[in-house]
């Protein structure tokens, strides 16, 4: 187990370094620099600013300075567009995105998994057909359609719900629902597929041959195996949910992390871009690890030693 964790930790570091390298190269490949479009600034000032941010050094040197600062000083650099440390920006916006993402995840699991189970158990019935049709719609309709529809038809009529804004506990409901809907739809389809797969296995027939009630067969014999595909999907999906969505956060005016991803790219804010990418990569690595641990917990055949000793 410890060996497995160490192995995954090493892999994670390699993944993050590769991610850093690619993001760095892409950022450098973008035409221009953070301050090229600033007008009304003298060439001398520009040179000073470039020096301040270390942009005047050779690219290879810049490539090594950033990880050195991250590792030795815990500094993710300073945003060139906002003039604040990247770490501060993340620390301020991430809790909002985290709360929104967690609630969205709750919606996704609470709606998606039961629908998937129901569809699988009643496969090829009108109920299955209806559930899967709704799931398909959930996947197809984008959040910038669902969001405004909820604002117009729900928020405007239900007292206590605001069309947009952030501050009261109930403000999280509509954006979380909007954000979680796509995941719920995917989860429903994955759960249905997973359970159908398990239902066709021989051991389910064995369970029926024992004379167990059908509902027990589903709950006891198929659920664990049937949820495995959903769990594998949830790892990266969870990371994506809690790191914020530009669209949903913009529609509902949530001060989350999503806006910064887009702004960092459009303002050529290299350090913010690198910091956010690394943070997102870190979340993905951790969530995948959690998903694998959960898989190991559900499926006793999966060995987490990473090695057969």
């Amino acid at each position: 187990m410890i060996r497995f964790l160490l192995n995954r930790l090493l892999q994670g570091i390699l993944v993050l370094f590769a991610l850093y390298t690619i993001t760095f190269l892409l950022a450098k490949a973008m035409p221009g620099e953070p301050f090229t479009s600033e007008k009304n600034v003298s060439a001398e000032t520009k040179a000073n600013i470039r020096k301040l941010y270390g942009l005047d050094r050779p690219i290879l040197e810049q490539y090594f300075i950033y990880p050195k600062n991250v590792l030795l000083e815990g500094s993710f650099g300073v945003s060139t567009s906002k003039g604040r440390p990247v770490a501060d920006i993340i620390a301020q916006s991430f809790p909002n995105s985290l709360l929104l993402g967690l609630c969205a995840l709750g919606f996704a699991i609470g709606i998606g998994v039961p629908i998937g189970i129901l569809s699988a158990v009643r496969r090829n019935s009108w109920l299955d057909w209806l559930c899967m049709a709704i799931a398909m719609i959930g996947i197809c309709v984008p959040s910038f359609t669902i969001g405004p529809l909820l604002q117009i038809h729900v928020a405007a009529h239900v007292p206590g719900l605001k069309v947009a804004g952030w501050g009261n506990p109930q403000d999280v409901l509509l954006p979380a629902f909007t954000l979680g809907l796509v995941s719920a739809a995917y989860l429903a389809r994955l759960t249905r597929g997973g359970i159908l797969e398990v239902l066709s296995q021989d051991f389910v027939r064995t369970a029926h041959a024992k004379g167990i009630a059908p509902i027990t067969v589903i709950l006891k014999h198929t659920l664990r195996g049937g949820l495995l595909p959903a769990v594998a999907y949830l790892g990266p999906a969870f990371a994506a949910l809690i790191s914020g969505s530009f669209i949903v956060e913009t529609i509902f005016q949530v001060p989350g992390m999503g806006q910064h991803f887009v702004n960092a790219a459009t303002t050529r804010d290299e350090f913010l871009l690198l910091g956010l990418s690394l943070f997102f990569g870190f979340l993905i690595v951790v969530m995948n690890l959690l998903a694998d641990l959960l898989t190991g917990l559900l499926d006793p055949r999966v060995r987490l030693e990473g090695n057969k000793d």
């Binding site: 296995q201 021989d202 051991f203 027939r205 041959a209 024992k210 009630a213 014999h221 664990r224 499926d299």
Partner: peptide, 22 residues
């Protein structure tokens, strides 16, 4: 169901796939 597994039991071909791995 009350007879199945109580008075008439069944064993199947492939003992790997017929036992629940979980």
């Amino acid at each position: 169901r009350a007879i199945r597994g109580k008075r008439i039991s069944m064993i199947f071909q492939d003992p790997m796939s017929c036992l629940n791995p979980y």
